[in-house]
Design a protein around this nucleic acid. Structure first.
Lengths: 154, 154
DNA sequence: GGTTGACTTAAACATATGTTTAAGTCCGAA
DNA sequence: TTCGGACTTAAACATATGTTTAAGTCAACC
């Protein structure tokens, strides 16, 4: 048996890259951006806690639904310093993204209808169209997590 | 009266910028990218046909629904060399975007549901989740206008 | 203890969509 | 004819999201 129990084994960046499917270069980048953390060995190499695997998976899933890293980072920063994310945390983060996605869907629907209307009306005057000069009536994105901040932390 | 009738007057880049609300720098950029055209004076300055105003409006409206310039350019290139866009053209372009928007809306809806499910199921295993490693089942964007190319040009 | 592969950093490069800047030229009006 | 503002170009800068590269260090195995 090794000196370190399997369930507390840390991951090198190569292992984390392999197991998460995310290139090491991207992992370093996430760290620079404050999305993940690592401890350093005496030789200055990164070692990751196993839960980082899940955090990275969350980052990728969030990116895949179109959330920018900066916003993902804001949400992850609700995790206190060294805390392992709880189920409660993931559920609330997921609620955040659901709201965000719903907002985007509605926006796209409005866009689609407006565009069709704009061309379809016959006057072809996009010049006065909301789509051409959106005075932010359409562009409300809400910028950031509201749901997560208005409750007790994990 | 001037030597040039009002309805054939060309626009300088400054005038086009002013009237379209798009900075001259962006107009030059659009031209480099092949989205708009201009003739040059003997002194090498740009002069725009009045219909360019409408083309620019179309570009901005398209951008505002999230279509990348490259795709907008593909659509605009269905306009023959010096041709003024017809109503037919705008209608078909609009159909293009409507399809595109519908596809995106559906994709976002799938994403939203998947994310909720993924977290809600209790196992918290995003590692196996489609969202984390999308094998392009979710990511079908279709890349480019299909509708416009499968009909008679304007 | 030596070799080799994995790790380290900083900085340049990539893409999309432009903006800004520097240095210079043209045009219209007095 | 001259002046100032509008125009020209190329190139650098900006943002987000990384990747690549160069040069060097560490760690693990034989």
């Amino acid at each position: 048996m090794s000196t370190v129990p399997w369930n507390t084994k840390e991951l090198t960046i190569g292992e984390l890259a392999e197991r998460s499917g995310v290139p090491a270069s991207a992992l370093r980048f996430y760290e620079r951006q404050g999305l993940i953390r690592s401890r350093r060995t005496s030789g200055n190499q990164r070692r990751y806690h196993r839960t980082t695997l899940r955090v990275v998976a969350f980052i990728r899933a969030s990116q895949n639904v179109g959330i920018p890293l900066a916003v993902i980072g804001e949400v992850l920063n609700f995790l206190p310093e060294g805390a392992t994310p709880t189920r409660e945390f993931w559920v609330r983060a997921s609620d955040c993204w659901r709201e965000e996605l719903n907002a985007r869907i509605e926006r796209l629907e409005r866009m689609r209808d407006l565009f069709t209307e704009c061309i379809g009306c016959g006057c072809l005057s996009f010049e006065q169209c909301l789509l051409v000069n959106p005075g932010d009536r359409l562009g409300e994105k809400g910028s950031g997590p509201h749901r997560l901040s208005s409750g007790a932390p994990a």
